[in-house]
Design a binder for these strands. Structure first.
Lengths: 115, 115
DNA sequence: TTTATACTTAGTCATTTGGCTAAGAGTCAA
DNA sequence: TTGACTCTTAGCCAAATGACTAAGTATAAA
């Protein structure tokens, strides 16, 4: 179930959504992970559920991610069509980001265990 | 004279720099105007010189613009190489932005008079 | 060498942002 | 239906942000 449906939002809203380190980390994570549930994001960012939820809401409102509810879980994935060239550029740039690289390793562990 | 020299800065800093409406307006203006002096930017944004100066400093630190001092004037231009794909994407998206379109008209007047 | 001009820096203030806790809503299992 | 679990909403607080005024720096003109 997608709360804020599709479409391109304005560039300013998109920039604002990506101007926070934790939201940028989530976007980067979704570039390699295809899909993550809220609990994965909580574990990755090491923040409370409430905080993660609000961050995901910002990304949703900007149109950068889509959400899908499955039972008690909410799964997020990138809405690549929203800003494909932007994502592509980011993906390249973030290759060199040490924190993002560390996150990638963490994600393997997080998504590995099915707790 | 370039205060913060060339190079690519990290994506987060770039996103932060572009996550403010006024700074996005300046970036958009520099996409069509090639070069603007501080006083042009003051007039465009309708803010004090101090405010404009601080905004330009953020853009400079992010590496998105370059500055050149000529006598009493400081001229700014886009540092396109810093994030060419990003600028290209922005340029496309901002085509539909009403405020940006209005700014373009304003800029013709501003850069026209040599006060 | 004053004086004016163009911009920057410092300091202040209101608003926004991002974190938290606590309470609420929705879903599944016992 | 009760309880456990996952996520969201509301409310609070500290820190960051963007605006202003006032004072400082640098350059050019008188």
């Amino acid at each position: 179930m997608t709360k804020y449906k599709g479409g391109m939002n304005n560039p300013l809203e998109i920039m604002k959504a990506l101007s926070d380190r934790n939201r940028l980390r989530v976007a980067a994570a979704l570039m390699t992970q295809n899909e993550l549930c809220a609990c994965n994001i909580i574990e990755l960012l090491q923040v409370t559920g409430a905080t993660a939820s609000r961050h995901m809401d910002v990304l949703l409102r900007a149109g950068l991610v889509k959400s899908r509810k499955a039972g008690r879980w909410v799964h997020y994935r990138l809405n690549r069509s929203a800003a494909a060239p932007l994502f592509q550029w980011l993906e390249t740039e973030l290759q060199n980001d040490l924190d993002i690289k560390a996150d990638r390793k963490t994600l393997v562990k997080i998504t590995g265990c099915k707790k």
